[in-house]
Design a protein around this nucleic acid. Sequence first.
DNA 1: GTACGGTGTTACTAGCGGTAACAAGAGTCT
DNA 2: AGACTCTTGTTACCGCTAGTAACACCGTAC
Lengths: 214, 214
Amino acid sequence: MDTTQRTDQQRSADRRRRELLEAADRVVLRDGPQASMNAIAAEAGITKPILYRHFGDKGGLYAALAKRHTDALLASLRAALDAPAERRERVESTLDTYLAAIEARPQVYRFLMHPAEGGQGGDQGFDVGKHSAPLLRRMGEELAQVIEERVDLGPGSQQLARVWGHGIVGMMHAAGDWWLGERPCSRAELVRSLADLLWGRLAAAGDRMGGPGF
Amino acid sequence: MDTTQRTDQQRSADRRRRELLEAADRVVLRDGPQASMNAIAAEAGITKPILYRHFGDKGGLYAALAKRHTDALLASLRAALDAPAERRERVESTLDTYLAAIEARPQVYRFLMHPAEGGQGGDQGFDVGKHSAPLLRRMGEELAQVIEERVDLGPGSQQLARVWGHGIVGMMHAAGDWWLGERPCSRAELVRSLADLLWGRLAAAGDRMGGPGF
DNA sequence: GTACGGTGTTACTAGCGGTAACAAGAGTCT
DNA sequence: AGACTCTTGTTACCGCTAGTAACACCGTAC
C-alpha cells in the first residue's frame, strides 16, 4: 500500500527527472553553456520552481547533467584503457577515444570544461568552475588506478601513478582543447605526437644548437 | 602644447588605471573570484561607471588583471626555460618555477584558472572561462617556441613542438592543480615525477601482471 | 465529505552587469 | 569675462539572472 505507492511515485519522479535532464541537455547544446534556468524550464514545458524542487539549485542541475556525460565518457575510456593490447596501443587508443569524443560533441565538451564561452549576452552562465575540476579529477584518478594496476613502477608506485594519472589527463585535456580550436592536424597525428611525448621522445631528441652548455 | 597636454592626460589615465587594477586585485584576493564590479569600485573609492569607462566591461577588467599576472608568470618561466643548463635540468627548473608560483599565491592562481570557486553566495563570478584558456594557450605557445628552437625533432618539428608545448603545459597545469588541492607530496617529488614521465619512464616500465597480451 | 502529498503556477526579492543622463571642475579659445 | 570642450564623477535606471514564497489544482486515503 504505502510501499507500492512510494515506489510508483519514486518512479514517476525519476522519469520526470530524466525528462528534465534531457530538456536541459537540449537547451545547453542549443544555447550554449549560459543557458538560463528559465530557458531550460521553458524547454521542458514547465516553470522554474519545479526545476528547483528537483535539483535544488543550478549547481545541482549542472552536476546531474555533467555526471551523465562524465559517466559515459569514463565508460568509453575505461574500455580503451582495459583493452587486451600492448601498452602503447592502449595509450593511443585511449587518447583517440577521448579526442574522438570531444570532436564528435564539442558543445558537450565545452559545456563540461568551459562554463560561459559562447554567446554575446550576459555572462551568468553555468558555474562550471566548481565542477570542471571534478571531471578532470575523476579521469585522473581513474587513469592513476589503471597505471598502478598494470604498470610496475617499483617503490612509491602509488604516488607516482597518481601524479602521472593527473598529469597525463591534463596533457590530453589541454592538447585536445587547443587542437579542437585550431585543428592544426589530423586526430591520428595528434594521437601519435602525444604518445611520442609520453614515450620519451623529448628526452631522446638531440639539441639543436651548441651543446647542452648553451 | 597639444602633445604635452595629451601625454599628461594619458599619464594620469594610466596611473588611474593602475590604481584601479590594484584595487581590483585586492578585492579579488580578498573576496575571491566572484568579486562584483560594485565591490571593486567601492574598494577603489569610486563608482561603477568609471570602471566601465576604463575597462569597457567586466571581461576587459579581468583581461587587464589577468595580463599582469600572466606576464609576470611567463617572465619567470622564460627565465627558467632559457637557462644555460642541460635539458632535464631546465625542464625540472621550469616545472618547479611554475609550481612554486602557484604554491606561493594560490589565490591568484585560482583566480586565473578557476572563475568562481570560493564563496558561498551567488555564482556570477568572473567569467574567467573565456580567459583562462588564453593563459594556458600563451604558456603552450611559448613552450612550443622554445622546444622548436632548442630541440632537434626532425621533419614536422614545428607541429610536433606545438602539440608538445600545449600538452606539457596541460600536464603541468592539471598536476599542479591536483597537487595544490591534496598536497600528497613535496614539490620536489612532484617535479621529479613529472620529469620522469616526460623522460619516458612510463614506456620503459615493465608490465605488472601477465604479458602484454593480457 | 475532508485532509493530504505531489505537481504546477504566478508573483516576487535581491543582486548582478551595464548604461543613460546629468553635474562639476579645469583648461582653452574668442 | 563668457562660451566650449574634455575628463571625472555621480545618481538612477534597465533588463536580466538565480532563487523563493504563496497560492491553486488534482488524485488518493480515510
